[in-house]
Simulated assay, not measured.
Amino acid sequence: MREEAEAAAAARRTGPLAAAPIPAPEAQSPECASVMSALPAALTVEGTPVPRRPLAEPAPAATVAWGDAGHDPITVRCGIDAPAELTPTSPLVEVSGVSWLEINQGGDSSWLAVDRPVYVALSAPADIGTGPLQDLSNLIGQKLPEQPVFP
């Protein structure tokens, strides 16, 4: 029974990933293009390279995913709208000079970079560790200028 469950989970982790469309009015912006073009072909998760995973059509603009049979998907989206959770009293976490808002969603975590000209979101399983968040923070810090969270 356990082997069947593991086989079913692995099957869900292969093939094109269906990414739900969400409003992303800045997805076609030069800022998003700069970030998205610099994302790596593979992420290192717990010492293992995890390749990019294709997105099912129609694929949302400015969205990239990684994952394979051994890893649940990790996604990055750029140019999305500010979530309702972002308020002047929201607790933010700074990672490598980038301010992030964490939004927990069941077993997954989503992090939203909130101090740049466009919002960039990272969604990953909660147990993935901080490596992808640190790597994305470094990339965002290089590609996008810092700005106030609430101008």
Rank of each mutant, 00 (worst) to 15 (best):
P23I: 01
P23E: 02
A24G: 11
A24L: 09
P25K: 09
E26F: 13
A27G: 00
A27V: 00
A27I: 00
Q28F: 10
S29R: 11
E31L: 03
C32P: 13
S34D: 12
V35S: 12
A38V: 00
L39A: 10
L39R: 06
L39Y: 01
P40C: 07
A42W: 04
A42Q: 15
L43E: 12
T44N: 08
V45M: 08
V45Q: 10
G47A: 11
T48I: 01
P49H: 10
P49M: 11
V50H: 00
P51N: 03
R52P: 09
R52Q: 15
R52S: 14
P54F: 08
L55Q: 00
L55D: 03
A56E: 03
A56Q: 03
E57C: 13
E57A: 15
P58W: 03
A59W: 09
P60W: 06
A61N: 07
A62T: 01
A65G: 05
G67L: 01
G67S: 02
D68Q: 07
D68L: 13
A69I: 01
A69Q: 08
G70A: 11
G70W: 00
H71L: 08
D72S: 13
D72G: 07
D72K: 10
P73R: 06
P73T: 01
P73C: 11
I74S: 05
I74P: 02
T75S: 15
T75E: 12
T75P: 15
V76H: 10
V76C: 11
R77N: 09
R77P: 07
G79I: 08
G79P: 01
G79T: 03
I80W: 13
I80K: 14
P83K: 00
A84H: 09
A84E: 14
E85F: 02
E85T: 01
L86P: 03
T87L: 05
S90V: 02
P91H: 13
P91Q: 14
L92A: 10
V93H: 12
E94Q: 08
W100Q: 03
E102H: 11
N104V: 12
N104K: 12
N104M: 10
